[in-house]
Design a protein around this nucleic acid. Structure first.
Lengths: 267, 267
DNA sequence: TAAATTCCTGCATAAAACCGCACGAAATGT
DNA sequence: ACATTTCGTGCGGTTTTATGCAGGAATTTA
């Protein structure tokens, strides 16, 4: 083996021992753009200045918006520029309330399966910053949102990508879900009623949600009250499989009473 | 030499060294253009004038826009052009050229494995609209870009998400790649040289790229010329595994000759 | 939770820049 | 020709900048 533990220290070149400030910053920016990341410590030895100086340089470059400064070094700006602004989301305020309730169910160390959808995105944003849990999803927008969180682990379920719903669907995705034993499963649902249970209108999505329900110890359905007592063409599962139902309404709202009576925890 | 008590003395005036102002500034400008940088202090001793004079000269040249004055000296203007690209994505134009060349290799019906990175994103944007092929990647930004295409199929490789690089990494991802027999594999690479082959600086990324190389019939490396003949800590594979190398340079550029000689197709 | 890094803030210092000012030399005006 | 102005330059003193260092806070890692 030519490389020992992946550590192979080489200086590409020895910059002039006496670098001007601007020159040094240009060199740093160059390195950031080239490698997408730099470490304060290695730059310090590379250019032979103190780490404080490097840090000040990184700070200035960051203030100019040329790089993104992070603990220990800096990152290229080009890599982290994917945002999903949530201006056009229907019933956003209600979804925020739902997300808040749902987040309270999650405890440190849990494995949490989630579907896609705007409600789940709000959930991702409502997670307390110090939470340490593992989130599993096949939805690309949701995973992007999870990635902004500082401490949670994110598992992406892979398979063919459905361009409309931006989720991965197919047998491979189902198989991956089946291999998981999650503590919690959050389903953003499109329709629920007492008699037919939860229903949806996309075959692939239905199959995925079925698999998720089977793989989780506790199934939590999230939906705005509007969708309570509505029906969609394809059956996912009966309400007997649901442990918890979360809407923006207070738990004692009469609309929710039948579900409570059916043994579902209503939050 | 005549001076009293060393208080007042005159430097021997050598007419040859005694420069006029314009002459001196021309000399300074020449030095700046030659070395991309000058120091006030060294110019002072070099021309035997006070640093104040040098500073005034530099100030005037800077006011005329001929140089960039910085603390301690001055820099040439070309310097800043080279090191401060105006674009967010480094070397974007070059990457567009590379993407164009790479896209020409893809034919209808092909299965194409790709890594992540800005070069691959450009490739995604450069795909002809009527192309019907299947693209497989574990990079979330790249997959988002693929999804904008009207007719290609997209397979997302799932596993734990690395928050920095926004790609999925881990044994599950490797296993999924191993199950694939792709026609083409596009690697956006960070460093390549004849002796060490392709190298990178992230263990997970290296493992993924290795797997991709094994799963593809034809391996195509994409990189800007700047990264040619550079080295990173961790070894991915020797150049013998590479079939095609694409840079923004014309194929007959001397920089690429060694790779051609090694049997690699250079585009 | 403890240990190790990394960051930040203030301070010290040396170098560089700045500000007048003086003085000699060249240019200009009378 | 002589006085006056302007320019170029250097010098002393002051201000600003760049950088390193110490020590405590914050953050990451083991």
């Amino acid at each position: 083996m030519r490389f020992y533990a992946g550590i192979y220290f080489i200086l590409p070149r020895n910059p002039a021992n006496d670098m001007l400030k601007k020159e040094r910053q240009a060199y740093i920016l160059h390195q950031v753009n080239l490698h997408n990341k730099v470490l304060s410590s290695s730059l310090s030895t590379e250019i032979s200045v103190s780490e404080d100086t490097i840090r000040r340089d990184l700070q200035e470059l960051a203030d100019e918006g040329k790089i993104i400064k992070v603990h220990g070094g800096a990152l290229s700006h080009s890599f982290s520029q994917v945002y999903y602004p949530s201006n056009n989301v229907y019933s956003l305020d209600n979804k925020k309330i739902i997300a808040q309730k749902a987040a309270s169910l999650i405890e440190d160390g849990m494995f949490v399966l989630t579907t896609g959808g705007t409600t789940i995105i709000e959930l991702a944003r409502a997670l307390p910053p110090q939470l340490k849990a593992t989130f599993i999803s096949g939805s690309i927008p949701v995973v992007l949102e999870y990635m902004h969180h500082p401490s949670i682990e994110v598992i992406l379920i892979g398979d063919k990508v459905n361009k409309n719903s931006k989720i991965t669907v197919g047998a491979e995705a189902i198989a991956q879900i089946k291999r998981i034993r999650a503590d919690l499963c959050f389903l953003g649902i499109n329709a629920i009623d007492i008699k037919n249970g939860i229903t949806d209108n996309d075959w692939d999505v239905v199959t995925l949600k079925k698999a998720m329900i089977e793989s989780a110890q506790k199934v939590v359905c999230l939906t705005i009250a509007e969708k309570i007592n509505s029906l969609q063409p394809i059956h996912i599962d009966d309400i007997s499989k649901i442990h918890t139902l979360i809407t923006e309404l207070p738990p004692d709202d009469p609309l929710l009473k039948p579900y409570k009576d059916a043994g579902i925890e209503v939050l």
